[in-house]
Each structure stands twice: as structure tokens, then as C-alpha cells.
Simulated assay, not measured.
Amino acid sequence: MTSTMTFTEPVSAHAEVTAEIERNLLASLSGLNSQATNSTLVLSRRDPNGNLVAGLSGSTSYGWLLVKLLWVHRGLRGTGVGTVLMGEAEERAKAIGCHGAWLDTSNQAARDFYRRLGYSDFGLLSNSPGNDPEGHCRWFMKKSL
């Protein structure tokens, strides 16, 4: 059977296939574990020309909001846009029963930003000496909602 299986997808289908995998996984898990609301959360801000200038993507599961992506255009950093996006995501998560939020980052400035919002480290993944990129680490952070 494995000789006829395809293990690659065209790049153009990655987002669609990822969403399908996630739907199937969540459906499988729902039969095994008690869950809170599983939902996707996408927030964005656009300029008057319709260009994306900031956005957040996340999901909820088991009472937790996972902030997968947060991006703010360089020209808007430090203006409060990121804080507003995070606050809105957290409020929406609380409204559907989430009790906490978590995320990960490998950017020290982003880590400092999240710490100002009340997030704290709960894990660290770092490269061993000699592994590229040397000194790279990723912080896992959480916050009670």
C-alpha cells in the first residue's frame, strides 16, 4: 500500500492541506479527550489602500489560545497596534471559554513585548554549540486570561 501513497503536496496547496490535517486531527482528538471550543482566530489591520499592515493568527483548543503569528509593519511598531491585536485576541478567546494563552518566539524584542503584556516563559528550546544558527533559542511563553 505504501508504494502508491503520495507524500508531497504542491506548494500552492500547503495552506489548504494544513487546514485539512488540523480539522482531521481535532476531529480524532475530540473522541479521546474532553475539549473546549476549537476555533481559528485571524485579525488584521489594513491601510487605506488595502495593504496589510498588521495581523494575528491563532487557534483555540483545550481552553488555551495559541498565538501562532503576530506581525506588525516596521513603521507601526511601537504605536500600540500589536498590543491592540493581542488584547482583542485574548478577549475573543476569553469569550469562548479560554483560561490561558501561549505562544513562542525566537526574537528577543518580541519576547520583551510579550513580557510587558503579562506573558512569562515556561520553556526554552536552544541550539547546542556548533549547531546552526549558533546561539539561536526559542522561548515558549504563557499568560492566564
Rank of each mutant, 00 (worst) to 15 (best):
G118E: 05
A93C: 04
C137E: 15
L56P: 05
N49C: 05
V84S: 02
E88T: 12
G118L: 04
A110M: 07
G80T: 12
D104M: 02
G55P: 01
N107H: 04
P10I: 05
H136G: 13
V11S: 09
E22A: 07
K68R: 12
F140L: 09
L26G: 06
C98P: 03
N24T: 14
W139D: 04
Q35L: 12
L52F: 04
S30E: 13
W102H: 03
N51E: 13
G118V: 03
A54G: 13
W64S: 10
G50A: 13
S44R: 11
M1D: 12
F140A: 04
V53P: 00
G87R: 03
A15M: 09
E88Q: 15
L103N: 00
A95H: 15
L103P: 01
Y114M: 05
T60S: 02
G135A: 09
H73I: 06
L103V: 03
N107M: 03
C137D: 14
L43M: 12
A15G: 10
W71D: 05
G78A: 09
G31W: 10
T8W: 14
N38Q: 09
A54M: 09
S34P: 03
R111P: 00
V81L: 08
S12E: 15
L124M: 10
H73E: 14
T83P: 04
V81T: 15
S30W: 06
T105N: 01
L125A: 11
L65I: 03
R45E: 05
W64R: 11
S128G: 06
E91V: 13
W64A: 10
M5G: 11
N49W: 06
L29E: 05
L65V: 04
S30P: 07
A36G: 15
L69Q: 08
V81N: 00
H99A: 11
S57V: 15
I21M: 13
S61P: 00
N131Y: 08
G82S: 07
E91S: 15
R23G: 00
